[in-house]
């Protein structure tokens, strides 16, 4: 398979693994790419919960001797319920991603 095509597929694959997966995939391989077990990388339960709270997710692969990391970008989903609105993926991105990237002190201190 063309390397660029595989990288594009792996970029999408981050949305189909872990919490809130769009499509349920259970295989430990994708084509000739091997998924690296997050547990072997020291991602414990508490860190994984922090990822979920922040709306972050990433997964690593090995392919032809390379290590490739795929991570989710901005998730534009919004919860319409008043009680869960602040848990909307886009709100989490705004609070934990954009504000940190923008250098807002409070957001950085929260990390």
């Amino acid at each position: 398979m063309n390397r660029d095509l595989l990288l594009a597929i792996l970029a999408m694959d981050a949305y189909n693994r872990g919490y809130g997966a769009g499509i349920k995939l259970d295989s430990g391989t994708l084509g000739k790419a091997n998924l690296i077990d997050p547990i072997s990388l020291g991602i414990d339960d508490e860190k994984y919960k922090v990822w979920q709270d922040a709306g972050f997710y990433a997964i690593a692969y090995e392919y032809n001797g390379e290590t490739i990391i795929s991570y989710r970008g901005t998730n534009f989903k919004v919860n319409w319920s008043p009680s869960t609105f602040l848990d909307s993926p886009i709100i989490k991105d705004a609070v934990n991603g954009w504000s940190v990237g923008g250098g807002i002190a409070g957001a950085q201190a929260g990390l």
Binding site: G28, D37, I39, S40, G42, D44, E62
Partner: peptide, 24 residues
């Protein structure tokens, strides 16, 4: 245990394909 590792009984393999369900 949840603060220390991501599974009760890790497979100790680098690759996800080597982990059985109990290792997850």
């Amino acid at each position: 245990v949840g603060r220390e590792r991501g599974a009760l009984k890790p497979s100790h393999s680098r690759y996800l394909k080597d982990a059985k369900l109990i290792n997850r």
